[in-house]
Design a protein around this nucleic acid. Structure first.
Length: 485
RNA sequence: GGCCCCAUAGUCUAGCGGUUAGGACGUCGGCCUCUCACGCCGAAAACAAGGGUUCAAGUCCCUUUGGGGUCACCA
């Protein structure tokens, strides 16, 4: 922004820790639109520095979901580019070298504090209701040569940023104006973890600089860590990008959108038959408008009309009803041919029927029984009213059943992949743990996913139904049971 | 709790000192119609509160209230 000749380069940096998130799509849309309008580049960078949370199939799902939405990128791990690698786990040497520079310059220091000590410090601060929580800078005063010796000897440690001790740091947010932070509020952030991986803060600053990112367009939740990033830019002697913090998508209760309260996986919307152009359009309506009454528009139209001053900062509630209305508009616009294509891409494909075939083959006496038998595979939310009485486990109150269902969900989500064997393995362990007979436990699951007492093996049903729809049904049923209690 | 952000109907939003505060979703009513849906017409529904500034405040400033975010070897 400071030198107008510099081409606009923006990025999104999702971490592959689960399902492709609508928040990722939301940020991708605004980055993509701005880059295209400015004739710049949009970069996709994978922030996979947390090995404990990384999920094997997650990265590919992010690519697929964004492609499905039509939000293309110019550089990324899958297509390469002149600023690669675009996967942070492949850039460890770069971060290490930069941290070395910081330490040498006195802008960072090695910290040998154990997780236990940090927990104690935190507990102590909470106990005395300290106004400012955070690291107590215990290792900041360590003799430098001594610290280097300990590190060289292999002693486990992290590297922390030595924040300025007095003064304020100004974040010039392009959407809100200047935001000042008192450095007394900010502790010495870990830059390099003891496993040698960088934290987000370090990796993000180093990569944004090296990749020549000009505008950081990200969610509002980052705004309070931005002063740390600004301090890092200062420590490196680099010029920070232009900051744009967009509002957070919200649940109906206005908290930050979360899977506990709202479907957040892009795959969910795909699986219940939302068209990609409707989802993208809807996301464009969240926090942005043409300035007139236009609500239905394409990405191209948004690119043509985009302006930062048309962004509103109140956190928008993600309203499924309005998304559905928009989807209806797009659906009605399709030709018969296109409708059939959409249905085919959704569930009426040979591939999907092939998944259904083994489940129904022995259960139908005539072909005309297929549809009534498999209706719940082609439905979104189910109506549990007819089976409400059966949706129970002997001697367990409804609230307990609800909790049990959510517990199953948690266990299953902690695992990679989605197949019947895994689902059953988790299911058996879960039933044992709760002390529920498998017969009862599995019947409840069956009623949740199929809303009927007769179905193919429940874990096969869940496998074909997919994670998103299964998750939603478990939550809906749990909510229903919790409300009855 | 500290710090930071935000504030027009239940929801998404227009408004950028002078408007009967506009549009959309949802809700309700009606029309159309063999049914349903679509479509069309209509209704109820908002400037969080209090102080300023100004001839004039939804619009500018302050305070309060409310909501949110953040305070990890997660991003």
């Amino acid at each position: 922004m400071s030198s107008p000749a510099r081409p606009v380069r923006v990025r999104i940096a999702p971490s592959p820790t689960g399902d492709p998130h609508v928040g990722t799509a939301y940020m991708a849309l605004f980055n993509h639109v701005f880059a295209r309008q400015q004739g710049g580049q949009f970069i996709l960078r994978i922030e996979d520095t947390d090995q404990t949370r990384a999920r094997a199939d997650s990265e590919q799902m992010i690519f697929d979901a964004l492609r499905w939405l039509g939000l293309s990128w110019d550089e990324g791990p899958d297509i390469g580019g002149p600023y690669g690698p675009y996967r942070q786990s492949e850039r460890k040497a770069i971060y290490r070298e930069h941290v070395g520079r910081l330490v040498a310059g006195g802008h960072a220091y090695r910290c040998f504090c154990t997780a236990e000590r940090l927990a104690e410090v935190r507990a102590e601060q909470q106990a005395r209701k300290a106004s400012v929580l955070g690291y107590d800078r215990h290792c900041r005063g360590l003799d430098r040569a001594d610290a280097e010796r300990r590190a060289a000897a292999g002693e486990a440690h992290t590297v922390r940023l030595a924040m300025p001790l007095t003064g304020t740091i100004r974040v010039d947010d392009r959407l809100r104006g200047a935001v000042d932070f008192d450095v007394a509020q900010i502790d010495d952030q870990v830059l390099l973890k003891s496993d040698g991986m960088p934290t987000y803060h370090l990796a993000n600053v180093v990569d944004d600089h090296l990749m020549e990112i000009t505008h950081v367009i990200r969610a509002e939740e980052w705004i309070s860590s931005t002063p740390k990033h600004v301090a890092l830019y200062q420590a490196f002697g680099w010029e920070p990008p232009a900051w744009h913090h967009l509002p957070l998508l919200r649940n109906a209760d206005r908290s930050k959108i979360s899977k506990r309260k709202n479907p957040v996986s892009i795959n969910y919307y795909r699986d219940v038959g939302i068209l990609p152009q409707a989802l993208v359009n809807f996301l464009g309506l969240m926090g942005w408008s043409f300035g007139d009454d236009r609500e239905k528009f394409t990405v191209d139209e948004m690119v043509a009309a985009f302006a930062w001053d048309k962004v509103s900062l109140g956190g928008p509630v993600f309203d499924l009803d309005k998304l559905t209305w928009l989807n209806e508009k797009y659906l009605h616009e399709l030709s018969h041919d296109q409708l059939v294509d959409a249905l085919h891409a959704w569930r009426f494909s040979r591939a999907y029927l092939l998944k259904l075939a083994p489940l129904v083959r022995e259960r139908i006496k005539r072909l005309d029984e297929l549809v009534p038998l498999t209706e719940y595979f082609f439905s979104g939310d189910l109506d549990y009213t007819p089976v409400l009485a059966d949706l129970a486990v002997p001697d367990v109150p409804p609230a307990g059943v609800a909790q049990g269902l959510l517990a199953y969900l948690d266990k299953v989500e902690a695992r990679d992949g989605w197949d019947a064997a895994m689902l059953e393995e988790v299911g058996r362990a879960w039933a044992t743990e709760l002390g529920w007979k498998t017969k009862h436990a599995f019947m409840v699951l069956r009623l949740v996913v199929a809303a009927r007492k007769a179905s193919p093996p429940v874990f096969d049903v869940m496998a074909v139904l997919g994670k998103e729809v299964t998750r939603r049904r478990l939550r809906q049923a749990a909510d229903l049971l919790a409300r009855r209690a």
